[in-house]
């Protein structure tokens, strides 16, 4: 056990699974870096260094750099998964989904059903998401609601280094296609992470705080903000439960509903744009299944219905902030 960053936790999960299972391979743009170039090998280890060191240990046969052709290599990962490998393909930024979505949602996501249950596609697509990097509209989105909408895909959103390692190992061992979303702003966050391999099951929400007054459901980086708000409000006498669902598909609806039954108040924090996102999904769930328990209207804290802006002042306004979450919690708590 030692402190590890979100980046190190992901790297360690990949390395440990590659050691354990020779069918695990990784592929993506510049996953090693420097392919065919005159300078250093393993020059990048991924654009933000997450896969650094894998190529020297496992070789080019298992750490494949790709041309910039997401359609082809994400599709190749799907085909490899359907024929006996366990590929972990990196879609550098989730915003690039637009050029390869077919291979994910029409192929990987549907093989099992279309082929009468006879296909197994143990694919992992790792992808970076989220605002806060001043990366503007095409490198900052939170597109997990789109994946969540597709039956056949599993969608994983780790909120911390411990979560990232255990959920990624589970993703790699899982026999269904998994989309694993890494928030780029979390890569340098650190916490205690076991050295040994471990798994965190899908569809089991984590309660990162337990309180009696308000339930906050949050995803990814927003869990961190929700925890900050819960800790601050605890001192002011408002005690919050923070639910980190960990996976949006499967979604642990039981834990969300049980918590709302206890607190009677719900704030959903979602960094995805507000139409048809997880906040609306969970709000609808609670309105349908736990309406009688509600003591106040549900509040959703989301960005506005705009692309992610570039200017730092605008981007800061765009992202759901701890201040906005706090205001929402105070509003539902009537305090």
């Amino acid at each position: 056990m030692s402190k590890k960053s979100y980046r190190q936790a992901i790297n360690e999960a990949l390395a440990q699974e590659m050691r354990r299972d020779p069918t695990v391979i990784v592929m993506g743009e510049d996953n090693a870096g420097g392919m065919g170039a005159p300078g250093e090998d393993d020059a990048w280890g991924g654009v933000l260094g997450v896969t650094k060191g894998l190529m020297p240990e496992f070789g080019r046969e298992r750490v494949l750099d790709t041309p910039i052709s997401e359609s082809a290599f994400i599709g190749a990962a799907v085909g490899a998964a359907a024929t006996g490998l366990r590929p972990v393909a990196e879609l550098m930024f989730v915003d690039f989904l637009g050029v390869c979505f077919d291979q994910i949602f029409n192929q990987a996501g549907k093989f099992k059903y279309m082929f009468g249950g006879k296909a197994v596609t143990p694919l992992v697509v790792r992808t970076m998401y989220g605002a806060g990097f001043r990366a503007a509209s095409q490198h900052s989105q939170c597109l997990y609601p789109i994946f969540t909408h597709i039956p056949g895909l599993k969608v994983v959103i780790p909120s911390s280094p411990y979560e990232a390692k255990g959920l990624l190992i589970q993703s790699i061992r899982d026999d269904d296609p998994v989309i694993f979303l890494e928030h780029k702003v979390l890569y340098d966050d650190e916490e205690e992470v076991p050295d040994e391999p471990y798994t965190i099951p899908f569809g089991e929400a984590n309660l990162t705080r337990e309180g009696e007054d308000v339930t906050i459901v949050a995803f990814g980086r927003m869990v961190k903000f929700a925890n900050e708000v819960a800790d601050k409000l605890e001192k002011d006498g408002i005690s919050c439960t923070v639910v980190d669902p960990r996976t949006t598909s499967p979604l642990d609806t039981d834990t969300i509903l049980e918590s709302v039954e206890e607190t009677g108040r719900l704030v959903v924090v979602d960094e995805a744009n507000p139409r048809c996102n997880m906040a609306t999904d969970i709000s609808a769930l609670v309105a349908q299944e736990a309406f009688g328990a509600l003591k106040a209207p549900i509040k959703m804290v989301t960005p506005p219905h705009t692309p992610v802006p570039f200017a730092p002042q605008l981007e800061d306004l765009y992202i759901p902030s701890p201040e906005k979450i706090e205001a929402a919690v105070r509003a539902v708590a009537g305090a």
Partner: peptide, 16 residues
């Protein structure tokens, strides 16, 4: 406590 339960859950999740 929460932490006691969490620590044991983390232990139980380890491979082996």
């Amino acid at each position: 406590s929460r932490d006691m339960v969490d620590d044991i859950l983390k232990f139980k999740r380890l491979d082996g």
